[in-house]
Nucleic acid binder design. Structure first.
Lengths: 234, 234
DNA sequence: CCAAAAGTGTTCGAATTACACCCATGA
DNA sequence: TCATGGGTGTAATTCGAACACTTTTGG
């Protein structure tokens, strides 16, 4: 058994994660990037990454890397793409599987993040990233924009309770363009997946805006029928 | 330089390809599968696959595997997903990057295919495939259905000249459901990416049906403007 | 009382759906 | 002449896009 496939070459396999967060005050989509602590490209900005260990599934590796950096588990995380150009990493031939994740900025473990030299950067002014990491971010952004339109994943970036204005701002930050307020509210409310709470957010306005929460149970029930989430926002 | 990353474990990396073809007479979408000639699972049905060699990019590896099996190059081929469960292959820990390809059945090199024990199977009655290959096919089918709706890739499965009836039949075979003939013709013709030839296909009917060809140049020109291919067929 | 943000409906045009008959021709 | 498959148009409905004023309340 151990001789099977023995004539074939093995490769280093890494995972790299595009970790999105949303700053609710600045109304900006952010990316978690780290300063590399080792060569090659030591001191340069890169995505959160790590190597896949023996006997470790790639999904688990990606979760491990995310957890080490942020202290978080059970996070919305999907595989994005496998990058396998032979010279993509100047240090060695490394095949990298990219993942993208959506997290709530406030929930991360500040200490772990700081120790790993992780920083949030606005996607509007990203620094240059090493290797093909900028390509990865672009692909992840496309995927996010596609995904957020057809699946209720935007909520992963917001607190448990949020106002419709905050949700709208999030979509505008993701698409980088203005969205009609009335049409947006009409659409999202008609889906019957939001629950209005008896509580208002009163910091940003005197009138106050109702908090809502995502009704995951109802979404699951609805999506078993012929219901489809579709937020054509602009 | 050669010592970088030296403490990390390496892995076997394979590529597996979901190769779709379309049988214009049977009006069926087909999958190219091969009988394994080596252990484990020798003699079982599997996807076309192979290992990534040193210094070979994964895209190149996938093309190589496809070329060896079918004699074809410059084929529509996209990465699908990277499968990295640690025990997915009982022979050894192998990480597999799946690709999906669209080819014209008639264009393949019969001799090469035969030597590699490759066979076309209707997607309506696929045999059991090894490992996680059935998952790969299902994912590829979803991707194909999504893709064929928003990009003009269906033509990759048809001969250079085809009738609108054949194109409709193809879409029905992909979606496995009937599509309204008039609406389909109206929609596809309104896109202005088909060119009607002065020639008819007269085998399947006495009246004959006009041949069309995909006008790739015009499609490229149009897609640079605000034009989007969208064939909401069903 | 007023500034500032939240909340609310309607109209118009475009796109999608449903649907049934005539045409051309070779046998 | 007739059986077979190719080709055509219109009406009804739905969906998305555009658009401006009223409400609430803390300072």
């Amino acid at each position: 058994m151990i001789k099977l496939y023995s004539k074939y070459k093995k490769h280093l396999v890494a995972v790299d994660s595009i970790i999105f967060g949303y700053d609710i005050l600045e109304k900006e989509l952010k990316l978690l990037v780290v300063k590399r602590s080792f060569n090659p490209a030591k001191g340069k900005w890169s995505l959160a990454g790590g190597f896949v260990e023996s006997g470790e599934s790639i999904d688990v590796a990606a979760c491990r890397v995310l957890r080490n950096l942020t202290g978080l588990k059970n996070i919305y995380m999907k595989q994005l793409y496998c990058y396998g150009e032979s010279a993509r990493d100047p240090g060695a031939r490394v095949i990298s599987v990219a993942y993208w994740a959506l997290i709530k900025i406030k929930s991360i473990d500040q200490k772990a993040a700081h120790e790993n030299r992780a920083h949030w950067q606005s996607i509007k002014k990203l620094p240059k990233l090493i290797f093909d990491h900028t390509d990865m971010v672009e692909r992840a952004l496309e995927e996010l924009r596609l995904r957020v339109r057809i699946k209720p994943v935007g909520f992963e970036l917001l607190p448990e309770k949020f106002t419709l204005v905050q949700l709208l701002d999030l979509y505008e930050a993701i698409y980088q363009k203005p969205i009609d307020k009335r049409n947006f509210r009409k659409k999202i409310l008609s889906l019957n997946i939001l629950e209005r709470l008896d509580e208002k957010e009163k910091v940003t306005s005197k009138k106050g805006a109702f908090y809502y929460s995502f009704n995951k149970a109802n979404y699951k029930k609805l999506s078993k029928r012929d219901f489809y989430f579709n937020l054509d926002a602009g």
